[in-house]
Design a protein around this nucleic acid. Structure first.
Length: 375
DNA sequence: GGTATCCCGCACCGATTACT
DNA sequence: AGTAATCGGTGCGGGATACC
């Protein structure tokens, strides 16, 4: 794959001048589907990426189409190859996606998270992107594996469309095209893809949901193209729930093992054997793990997990869990596990809160309604 | 007077329809 | 059944226009 990719990139660079040569009768270059550059950008590279990412088991790859273009009709100033999730968008004019953007001179390639710009003015795009950049910046600042990603402006070309592409880019990593490393790129795509879905699940789905609601009042049709089709929303939502479950289980498993290790290190192998992952068998106890303090006192642990590193850990806690915590007091431990997705175990951040009632900051989110039907 | 925005025609593409 | 014509949708740059 690496060989094919490298030769496709060479093909791309060597044929660029020829491809961009204006047609004499028209005064501008026209897309030629039998040209080697077209083949590289539209067919070959997307195919290689799709195959390799499938092999790497990229998250959600089965819903993703890798699609490339040099423009339709007229040759575009910058070529792009996008990873389009069918449930979010099928075209880079709409929605949000991970994308490879070549600059006009083919000197640099940018791996980026960008959004559709069709029908949006440059200023609107900048406005929208600014908020997203802030969100991503707080993430990459705190997370070492994203240290080569930046949220600053990029330059793709001088024409309006290129400016729009650049303006919609939320964060990027730049590569010199001539020294592009395939494996590094694939790794980075996987990394950015995870972040992309994190954003989709946590932010974008909410953004588009509220926009969708506003749009029904027929005022804001200029922003319809940022929204996910509500019919496809359900599928993404299920995906999110599934992911949350995996994250939760992983966090609980981690804590079970950690408890056993801790007790053994305190010279209590007997207690270590009695640590139980109770939520695997029973629901509604109000805690996930029954363990012990080194003193031998019972320790009931409720685990909350987050896949990524977070400044502010947000979690959902049920009334039942709070009630149980209120009864068990010092025996009840709320355990927050952040950065489960990290491959480096040392980067996983664990915080224990003993007797959490009164110590934690909570906001009611669900209510039970009652009304007499006899009035 | 420079820039952002709108509108337009051209070219491509895939799907559908019409024709042999 | 196979192929040709057609059509709607879409993405591009350019020119006209609006706006500071």
């Amino acid at each position: 794959m690496k060989k094919e990719f490298d030769s496709a990139i060479r093909e791309l660079v060597s044929h660029n001048d020829d491809y961009r040569k204006p047609r004499e009768d028209l005064g501008y270059a026209v897309v030629k589907s039998d040209h080697p550059l077209y083949y590289a950008v539209v067919k070959n590279i997307p195919f290689i990426l799709q195959e390799e990412l499938k092999k790497q088991n990229l998250y959600n790859i089965d819903s993703i189409d890798v699609k490339g273009s040099t423009g339709d009709g007229k040759v575009g100033e910058c070529y792009w190859i996008a990873l389009l999730d069918k449930r979010i968008t099928t075209s880079p004019t709409e929605g949000m996606y991970v994308v490879l953007l070549f600059d006009a001179s083919l000197e640099y390639l940018y791996l980026s998270i960008a959004s559709g710009t069709e029908n949006l003015s440059l200023s609107k795009i900048k406005q929208q992107t600014e908020l997203r950049r802030q969100h991503f910046k707080s993430h990459i600042d705190k997370f070492s594996s994203y240290s080569e990603f930046y949220t600053e402006d990029i330059f793709l070309g001088s024409l309006p469309r290129a400016k729009k592409f650049a303006a919609s880019s939320c964060l990027h990593k730049a590569y010199k095209v001539e020294s592009l490393d395939f494996e590094e790129l694939i790794n980075d795509i996987c990394l950015l893809n995870d972040l992309f879905y994190e954003y989709v699940y946590e932010q974008y789905m909410n953004e588009s949901y509220s926009l969708q609601a506003i749009n029904t009042t027929e005022t804001l049709n200029f922003q319809t193209n940022t929204g996910i089709d509500p019919k496809k929303y359900a599928s993404l939502r299920k995906e999110k729930e599934k992911r949350d479950k995996v994250t939760g289980d992983k966090a609980e498993e981690l804590i079970v093992n950690r408890e056993k290790q801790l007790l053994e290190s305190f010279g209590e192998p007997g207690l270590a054997k009695k640590v139980e992952w109770v939520s695997q068998q029973k629901d509604g106890l109000g805690y996930d793990i029954s363990s012990f303090f080194p003193s031998g006192a019972a320790k009931y642990i409720e685990v909350k997990g987050s896949k990524f590193w977070v400044y502010q850990f947000t979690y959902y806690i049920s009334k039942n869990e709070l009630d149980v915590a209120g009864v068990l007091r010092d025996s009840y431990v709320l355990c927050l596990v952040s950065n489960i997705g990290s491959t480096d175990k040392d980067e996983i951040n664990i915080k224990e809160i003993i007797d959490p009632v009164g110590k934690i900051n909570i906001t009611p989110l669900n209510y039970v309604g009652k009304h007499s039907m006899n009035d």
